[in-house]
Computed example of a mutant assay.
Amino acid sequence: MSFSCPLCHALLTHEHNSYTCPQGHRFDKAKEGYVNLLPVQHKRSRDPGDSAEMMQARRAFLDAGHYQPLRDAVAERLATVMEENATSILDIGCGEGYYTAAFAEVAKSKGAETVGLDVSKSAIRAAAKRYPQVTFCVASSHRLPFEEASQDAIIRIYAPCKAEELARVVKPGGWVITVTPGPKHLMEMKGLIYDEVRLHAPHSEQLAGFALKHEQSLGYEMTLTGEEAVALLQMTPFAWRAKPEVWETLGKQEVFRCQTDFSLHCWQREG
Rank of each mutant, 00 (worst) to 15 (best):
V115C: 00
Y99Q: 14
A52H: 10
C5S: 04
Y99A: 13
A57P: 06
R44Q: 14
K184C: 03
R77C: 04
I157S: 12
K43P: 00
G226A: 01
D152E: 03
E148L: 01
H25E: 13
S109P: 05
A149W: 02
H214E: 13
L199I: 09
M1E: 00
S109C: 09
A101L: 05
A126L: 14
G209F: 01
E221T: 15
R143E: 02
H14G: 01
F146S: 05
L199Y: 11
K252A: 15
L250A: 11
A167K: 14
H265V: 07
G182R: 11
R26C: 11
L144I: 15
P181S: 00
V106L: 03
A153Q: 02
H142W: 13
A239Y: 05
E188R: 06
H265N: 09
K171Q: 11
A107K: 06
R168D: 10
E196D: 12
Y194A: 10
F210T: 08
K108N: 14
I193P: 12
L192Q: 07
Y67R: 04
R269A: 10
E147N: 07
G111P: 05
P244S: 01
Q151K: 07
F27H: 06
A242K: 00
P202K: 05
Q151W: 01
V169T: 11
T13N: 12
L186P: 03
S140C: 05
Q56D: 15
G116S: 06
H203N: 12
K110T: 04
E83W: 06
D152Q: 03
Q253K: 15
L233V: 12
L224S: 05
I177S: 05
I193Y: 14
E83M: 11
L62I: 02
A52R: 13
R46A: 05
A112R: 04
L199T: 14
